[in-house]
């Protein structure tokens, strides 16, 4: 029976955060592949030019680095899933660990399909979308494994309608769709208009989320901090969006991707991922603080009641 010793919990939490950070590197590597037009520089998969290590020249360097980092992240995710299964007693944590592993395997297969397919606008967009799902799964798992999540949190009640957690959840969903639209535009599946409309909707929802959280939970320091992160990444992402658009239009006549174009567009991709992650974490934090109020009260009372609350959580999955 897995047991949550504080030391093991802290270790697996740190490992989850490390894996999440490596996934950011993986996202960056993927952006470098796309924006250096190197997505098809290695026509075969899973081998590269029929061998394990291809000639590392030109665009192959980007594509092969992406594959190597993806391999490392896959191994890290496998280790994380096994580690969680061994030390975590909460079923949700174990399920999330295996889900992350399943996602990274599916992502590898989708990456292979992207390489082998002739017209990859759809498969490349799907690959980019699944990458974001995998990343927010890891980010959410990290939060769930964190000492913060498992600590006794102060009570917070939400009398507003719709609930702040619901608003945050919808914001996360819309940001995800917006990220997918951006990927679809990047891979030539659609034009820029849907992505611009999406930006407007995201703006409204991000503002609404921030207002709802700040007004309804003025004393909830962690939630307010989450809003600060959300707004910071949102502002950065808007600026990067304009910069990426400018870089793209000014590079229209270039015969090859310029360093400025690659830098700004990859930064925009990363900004989208971080915005999505911050919104995901804020959403989960809202659910944790509001939903966990009764349990937090109980846990403050007696250790025996804490154990009972833990049992109830296990039973609830």
């Amino acid at each position: 029976m897995p047991e949550n010793s504080p030391q093991a919990s802290r270790g697996v939490y740190r490992f989850a955060v490390f894996t999440s950070c490596c996934t950011v590197l993986l996202l960056m590597a993927g952006g470098l592949v796309t924006n250096n037009l190197a997505g098809d520089s290695v026509p075969d998969w899973p081998l590269a030019y029929g061998r394990l290590i291809p000639p590392l020249v030109g665009g192959i360097r980007f594509e092969y680095s992406h594959r190597v980092i993806a391999g490392v992240v896959s191994i890290l995710t496998l280790v994380l899933a096994i580690w969680i299964a061994r030390v975590e007693r909460r079923p949700v944590a174990r399920r999330l660990g295996w889900l992350a592993l399943g996602l990274v395997i599916a992502q590898a297969v989708l990456g292979g399909i992207r390489v082998l397919e002739g017209d990859p606008a759809v498969s490349a967009t799907a690959h980019a979308a699944l990458a974001q799902i995998f990343f927010i799964t890891l980010a959410g798992l990290s939060l769930y494994l964190s000492p913060w999540w498992q600590s006794d949190l102060p009570t917070a009640s939400d009398s507003g309608s719709p609930r702040a957690a619901s608003i945050a959840a919808w914001t996360t969903v819309v940001i995800f769709l917006q990220v997918v639209l951006g990927a679809a535009f990047r891979h030539g599946a659609i034009g820029i208009i849907p992505h611009l409309i999406g930006a407007g909707i995201v703006t409204a929802l991000v503002v609404w989320t921030g207002r709802a959280v700040k007004r309804r939970f003025p004393g909830a320091r962690d939630l307010r901090r989450g809003v600060v992160w959300l707004h910071s990444f949102f502002g950065l992402q808007v600026l990067l969006g304009f910069a990426a658009w400018w870089a793209m239009t000014s590079a229209l006549a270039a015969v090859q991707p310029t360093a400025l174009f690659v830098t700004l567009t990859v930064a925009h991709v990363l900004g989208g991922a971080l915005l999505l992650a911050s919104s995901t974490l804020l959403t989960l934090a809202c659910f944790r603080v509001v939903r966990g109020a009764s349990r937090a009260e109980g846990s403050l009372a007696e250790p025996a009641q804490r154990a009972a609350a833990g049992s109830a959580e296990r039973a609830g999955g």
Partner: peptide, 15 residues
């Protein structure tokens, strides 16, 4: 008249 945009290799509108 720049008449080509890569459809499958990213949004970079070279040539």
């Amino acid at each position: 008249h720049w008449n080509y945009r890569p459809r499958s290799s990213g949004g970079h509108g070279v040539e």
